[in-house]
Design a protein around this nucleic acid. Structure first.
Lengths: 333, 333
DNA sequence: AGCGTTACTGCAATCGATTGCAAATTGTCA
DNA sequence: TGACAATTTGCAATCGATTGCAGTAACGCT
């Protein structure tokens, strides 16, 4: 920059102004042109670090995901990066383990990069992480999962509606004995979907059977299903809180020699990639994850730029995707 | 930091030294203690941006992926983030489109964040991106795909071996008419796997039938398969360059009323997540993507820290995973 | 006592931008 | 012609660390 100033015969500050679109009007046109062409010649690249030091920002946003390999989070991350980079920000991704203490130290690390904001996809219902970030004064947006207390903005799917779609579909097919494989109740999705299941069931005046899985994973889903089948034998339909759990249900059924949908109808949640190609193609509740990421990123950028502290909750509308894993119950019933 | 200096009654530079483990020995023990405790009290957080400005670095690494939603890249990214954050670096992820021009401008954006290095998972065989980065003097590591010219380090899978495993398996089952759905030949994986296919076939003294898909996608795989079936009718086995392509093959077979593996054996490549649960469970070639990401990150960190410019190519050993999509051909042959 | 070490600590420059304030130049109007 | 306004440009401080160099004090040794 100094070189440009010398080459153009002006002061560094003039160069700075000439190169900033918002300040360019302060500089005479011919000087601007001289500076710009010199910058071109010298191959000038502004040093964002220096500018950011001065401006007290970093143009960086931290994104915390529970598990990068989980196909649900890939589209979310995609939507986030897309929107963020369009707004001139760059996402720093971090993969959080399970232990809360670990998470805090992970956030410490991310924060040490001086991120301007944070998008969390990891929070549990009552997460100390949120309080931690608030105390640090870092703008935070929750995505996919929300927290019980209303301390920060979030963008999530309408979990209650999603479960209602699933239950209504099963009930509409004629199922009466319907069970729910719940996700970890420490997560908002786990709790909200379970509540959604129960209220939807009671609208049909049906009793709901619920079994909580230890985690959002295939193996946990299989295990929960095994317990379920051992306890309540006459179930004909299962609404899982999550596609991964639904796959676990399928695993458990297969192991017991039961067929889906013939012996048992199964509905998932999320419509992860490839759910149309599993066997049987999974009827599930679709959530627009990519859009979720986009909105979250947009809200965060807004919060950073305008310093707006008002919290708002965006709730996306899920949609039932009917494939082949749910059929009417066998006529024997 | 100035506050700490005042509170402890020393100069800022002393504080800096006391807080840096590598320089702490230059400061008297009691002073260190005073400074550390004051830092604690004042809740001091070092400003990495300032330090990095001075040190001319950013502790940031750019990661370019062709498509975040593609399940193959999620584990790679996972391995990268894991290793990077352990080394004190943070990954900035960017999703590259297809157009090369777009990619360059994307890299410009990433580079404007002053990243210390770059990991590219996007390159084509002869990619101007690589030259661009070299000219800019940014350390680069290629992952998953390599380039034809040997200008930078890379970590990839042994594509030739992978295809040989697939072909040997099919041939071992008794198949004689085997086709290959190749990936885009502009990518190293496309070319190398095709070459691997052909040389493996000739080892068995079999003629190889090859059809190139327009992209690594299900629809492109289905399309290529449709062409293939229309042209050469007596094929009994297909080795796809990629699981996504293999899923496309399955789609095309289904549409024609052909069953897998009864009418046609299919082998994929990559062993993406969920390939065990599709119908039929896919026999495929497993690649340790997460490990690939780890190694790439480690190599990049090494290149950044030691400024080592020597290029090296790490080649990972793939492994055949036998599931249910490949059986002996029907006895009619 | 005198001299050379060693151990600390302070000073001030530096990294590369941004920006409020002041100065210089030119233009405008009465 | 003089006063005042508008337009440009320069000056220098600032963001928050790092570090080479120099200076001081304490210590050891003969």
């Amino acid at each position: 920059m100094k070189q440009i100033a010398d080459a153009a015969g002006v002061h560094r500050s003039t160069v700075s102004r000439a190169l900033d679109p918002k300040k360019r009007h302060l500089v005479a046109d011919d000087v601007v042109e001289r500076i710009v062409s010199q910058a071109e010649i010298l191959g000038y690249r502004p040093n964002r670090i220096a500018a950011n030091l001065r401006l007290g920002r970093s143009d960086l946003v931290g994104v915390l995901l529970p598990d990068i390999a989980n196909p649900v989070f890939a589209p979310i991350l995609g939507g986030i990066t897309e929107t963020l980079s369009a707004a001139g920000y760059a996402p720093i991704v971090a993969e959080a383990g399970n232990a809360a203490s670990e998470q805090i130290s992970l956030v410490e690390t991310v924060l040490s990069q001086r991120v301007d904001g944070l998008i969390l996809a990891t929070v549990s219902q009552d997460d100390e992480l949120v309080g931690f970030c608030i105390r640090r004064g870092v703008p935070v947006i929750l995505v996919n999962r929300s927290e019980a207390r209303d301390r920060v903005s979030s963008v999530v799917s309408d979990d209650a509606l999603g479960m209602r779609l699933a239950v209504d579909h099963l009930a509409g097919l004629g199922h009466r004995r319907i069970a729910h494989i719940a996700g970890p109740l420490s997560t908002s999705t786990g709790t909200l979907r379970r509540e959604g299941f129960e209220s939807a069931m009671s609208r049909h005046a049906l009793p709901g059977i619920v079994r909580e899985a230890a985690a959002y994973s295939r193996s946990a889903g299989a295990e929960a299903t095994a317990h379920l089948l051992a306890t309540s034998g006459d179930i004909t339909g299962i609404a899982a809180a999550n596609d991964l759990l639904a796959l676990g249900v399928l695993d458990a059924l297969r192991e017991r020699g039961l067929r889906c949908p013939d012996d048992m109808s199964v509905i998932g949640h999320n419509d992860m990639p490839l759910m149309d190609v599993v066997s049987p193609p999974l009827t599930t509740v679709r959530i627009e994850h990519r859009e979720m990421g986009r909105i979250a990123a947009r809200m965060l950028v807004d919060a950073i730029k305008n310093g707006s502290t008002d919290i708002q909750h965006v709730v996306l509308r899920p949609e039932l995707v009917v494939r082949s894993s749910a059929d009417p119950p066998r006529s024997t019933s």
